[in-house]
Nucleic acid binder design. Structure first.
Lengths: 344, 344
DNA sequence: CAAAACGTTCAAAGCGCTTTGGTATTTTGC
DNA sequence: GCAAAATACCAAAGCGCTTTGAACGTTTTG
């Protein structure tokens, strides 16, 4: 059933039917009712392709996720992010177009997406410190919002980010104040902006408490469980093990916990750990009494906010750029405690 | 730059340019070269909406993921599945349209997707035992492939599945043969077909070895880490704890391991565990020497096969239905060993 | 009471592409 | 050397929708 047929079956012109369906005022209420009822009865939906062509709007948002050729993995945060974003999208009639591209094809893929007119806007995931995508998108003129920031990019752009630096500084100082002096950072890939900021916050926290960092206590890699395990094990079996660990995600923390328990240490007593918690649905850290003491910040909520911002941006592409900084709450759990042999 | 402008800039008609770009034979090689070069120079891409409208093909595959209103979570396997599928899609010029819908809106959302002509085909995720989506899609006439099966559905349909029953039966018998008599199953949601089949396989394995199941050793829920933990803890602290556990996923197994270690038990010695391993990229179970003894079956590979099958199906929607049964390999790891106090 | 205004409807053009059904021009076959 | 076939191109219709501009009958206004 298409518009023409529907119109014919009602003895109306396509024009009138279209206006009735789209809520234009110049159609009588009686006719509108008839049209709406008939559309319903026939389960009529306008063909998206035709509508998009006629209106110039695709009503579709592009999400490009990048597989680095070396790592080739999709971060599980994506699943929760998209769940949040899609709530907002569906409220506003938008669909999601998902592309998975290798980082070599990334620039080309953005250009193509724009040239094909496949989407009205784009969400940029996992920005690097000097991410070329931002300048590229500015040049192309396709509306976008960055989830995260790109510290080295000077051009203005819209973003939603967590205060990673502040959170990690806070957590570090919290651990120092518990008496810990050897605090490890098991970080994400530090070419990604969020991980760089976390390291910065960690270093700032140490420095604020007059401690100097030990490179042997700092690791950086893709945030898998086994990475968490291997990094923690290496540190714990070294001559000068940490008494506390800052982990970049619950998954990393789970790996680290494995190493800790394998060493026969008791988490929260022999060693402390704070994890960043994106509140992924499959990795619930407990509600009011978390397992891990954690920096909590819902990535699903971030998805909602990014989606909302992008929709505003699409409505007003030339307006001033927007940004939103979310705070991560420090939630006390059972994985932290005073350092056993505090020197001070 | 659109087709008309490109044609004008070349002094050709849109017809000829279109044919040149689409590889039709009735255009001279010299002209084709000129057109291709010009298209390249201007970074011209045909407008997808116009192309889709004119050809009737959207070149887009729909993936509908369902949030149950009670659970509201997106399984992390989705990220890896889509990575595999998108490899095949991009080789064949297809895009992905992603919808996240609550299970109440599910039927409506399929109907809408078809009526809107938004996609050429659909992948059905996480089928339930008597999944109504299959009949619905047959009725609508939209090509689709099911990742998994729906045991109670009698209508023919295309599917790709892992031999869950066989794998879990094998694993159960393996554990019995190691001397275990109290074997727990920490399963996924048993209204989902794959989980039901796994339970069947588990029960068949017990039965083949003349053991009767103990309901206290069987759990079923969404496969989160904390579920694995809580289920294992409950069983381990009961009067008659298991000596071996079958876990539905690596994530569940990680939760179970937490409970095991918390009890001061040593995995592989005091208690055995076999996990189903979808080879999720963030949960590497080790390569040749896995951490967990595991039933290994790559969900990314399943994504590739589903995508391939769907593309064939779209090309020949009326052909005979296809299906593919993948086997899960039992990989010996460090989490299994002989039962300590074997009775027989 | 004619003119203007209004409310409701429609015909037709246009979005950017593909594809049908041509038409010139060149090449081939006899 | 000429009809037939092949080659290389194009005009125009059509995909299903939105939207502009016009038309119609009715009501209001001066």
């Amino acid at each position: 059933m298409n518009l023409k047929e529907l119109a014919q079956s009602l003895g109306l012109s396509p024009t009138t039917v279209s206006r009735a369906l789209n809520g234009y005022p110049e159609v009588s209420e009686a006719t509108r009712r008839r049209v709406l009822d008939a559309a319903d009865a026939h389960n009529y939906r306008p063909d998206t392709r035709a509508t998009a062509l006629a209106t110039g709007r695709a009503m579709r948002i592009g999400h490009v996720i990048t597989l680095s050729t070396t790592h080739e993995m999709v971060n599980p945060v994506f699943a929760d992010f998209i769940t949040g974003a899609s709530e907002i999208y569906s409220q506003n009639g938008y669909d999601i177009a998902l592309s998975v591209v290798s980082d070599a094809d990334e620039a080309a893929s953005y250009r193509t997406l724009a040239a094909k007119r496949a989407v009205d806007g784009i969400v940029v995931h996992a920005p690097k410190i000097d991410d070329p995508r931002i300048e590229l998108l500015n040049e192309i003129g396709l509306p976008y919002v960055v989830h995260g920031r790109a510290s080295a990019v000077t051009a203005p752009y819209c973003w939603v980010d967590v205060n990673n630096r502040g959170a990690f500084r806070r957590a570090t100082e919290f651990l120092v104040d518990l008496g810990h002096r050897r605090i490890a950072l098991i970080n994400g890939l530090e070419r990604l902006d969020f991980a760089m900021r976390r390291r910065d916050g960690y270093l700032a926290g140490l420095s604020a408490r007059r401690l100097s960092p030990d490179p042997a206590l700092m690791a950086s890699d893709e945030m898998t469980e086994s990475y968490g395990y291997l990094a923690a094990r290496r540190m714990l079996t070294s001559g000068a093990p940490p008494t506390a660990i800052l982990a970049a995600s619950i998954i990393v923390a789970m790996g680290a916990r494995r190493a800790i328990e394998e060493r026969g240490l008791r988490l929260g007593r022999d060693i402390s750990m704070i994890a960043h918690d994106d509140e992924l649905s499959y990795f619930d850290n407990g509600g009011e009494e978390p397992n891990f003491t954690a920096l909590r910040s819902s990535v699903r909520d971030a998805g909602r906010r990014v989606a909302q911002m992008l929709i505003s941006r699409i409505a007003a592409p030339e307006g001033p750029t927007m940004s939103e900084l979310l705070e991560a709450d420090l939630m006390l759990g059972r994985s932290t405690g005073p350092a056993l042999h505090a020197e001070a």
